[in-house]
Write a protein that binds this DNA or RNA. Structure first.
Length: 294
DNA sequence: TAGGCCATCTGGTCCT
DNA sequence: AGGACCAGATGGCCTA
């Protein structure tokens, strides 16, 4: 269990450990209602980002020198760097199923591999590709490579939704000018008439406080996402490269916990260990079929 | 192209 | 009063 604990740690995203900031054009031009020119820095997408039509933060970033959006010119370059973090032939980008061959040496069918592993499961010898964080070579979270050597996973390179890293919070208006900060500017209908997402004013909040609240909210959500990422690494899956939604992670985690509970107390769940394992296996299969990582 | 999933913004509510 | 938490709205990306 110490292994689980050590591999489930997650850190609260910090501005220093964040995605590159969007350029001023991201929001500035959006502010001018030119969605066709607004690239969206989608953290999920590794290909060329499409244009984004609207982004509410635009209202916080008018085209003014010294604004929070004016000095971020590294985003495109950094984005491309990130897109190269996980090249297809890298150990990280490589499907774990490639490294987790089934007993008969075939790894074409992940479901088959899983089934093979599930059959091994009742023998209390957890296959390394079935429960990655529990079967390791003395290194928490390590994974066996094709050469049989267990290595630490390069988590930052996983093409995972939950591995998305937060953007620099400083871009979101912490550097607002005093003029902007003190204004309780509400959006006039004209200012958003072309936008599809008109928002009200900030009630009793100043713009500065609204921006700060947004930043806190982002940080909070990032923390939750990081926890999901940790949980995902703790639960079994087809392969390390498998895409799992948050809902799928929760479902698999529940079935996995039930299976582990059966290890110590069959009566607690009312099912035999084999049944619990079967349930867990089916859950993984079902959730794995829903969507696969690429 | 529709639906799923997600990030983000926003306002409301609760807590300290 | 201010922050944490929550849910709704919105829009982008991805996949079938």
């Amino acid at each position: 269990m110490s292994v689980l604990t050590s591999t489930c740690e997650y850190s609260v995203p910090s501005p220093e450990d964040s995605l590159p900031s969007p350029t001023r054009e991201d929001y500035g031009r959006d502010f001018d209602h030119s969605p066709q020119d607004t690239p969206r820095k989608n953290k999920r997408k590794l290909s060329e980002p499409k244009k984004r039509t609207d982004f509410s933060i635009k209202r916080f970033c008018p085209d003014s020198p010294g604004s929070a959006c004016s000095d971020s010119v590294k985003s495109d370059e950094s984005l491309s760097d990130r897109s190269q973090e996980n090249p297809p032939d890298s150990p990280v980008g490589k499907s774990a199923s490639d490294d987790c061959s089934s007993p008969n040496g075939s790894n074409k069918d992940d479901a088959h591999v899983l089934h093979q592993n599930a059959l091994i499961y009742p023998g209390f010898r957890t296959p390394h590709c079935f429960i990655p964080n529990f079967y390791y070579n003395g290194i928490p979270g390590s994974f066996p490579g094709s050469d049989g050597v267990h290595r630490m996973p390069e988590l930052s390179g996983i093409n995972s939704t939950n591995s998305q890293r937060p953007r620099d919070l400083s871009q979101y208006g912490h550097d607002l000018s005093e003029k902007e900060s003190n204004s309780q500017e509400s959006l006039s209908p004209d200012s958003v008439k072309d936008g599809k997402r008109p928002r009200k004013n900030y009630k009793n909040m100043t713009r500065e406080r609204r921006v700060e609240a947004n930043a806190r909210e982002r940080s909070r959500v990032h923390t939750i996402s990081a926890a999901f990422d940790s949980l995902r690494r703790a639960v079994p899956s087809y392969s390390y490269n498998q895409k799992l939604s948050k809902l799928a992670i929760l479902r698999i985690a529940c079935s996995y916990i039930n299976a582990l509970t059966c290890l110590t107390d069959d009566e607690k769940t009312g099912l035999s260990f084999a049944e619990c394992v079967d349930n867990c296996t089916r859950t993984i299969q079902t959730e794995g079929k829903a969507r696969r990582r690429h």
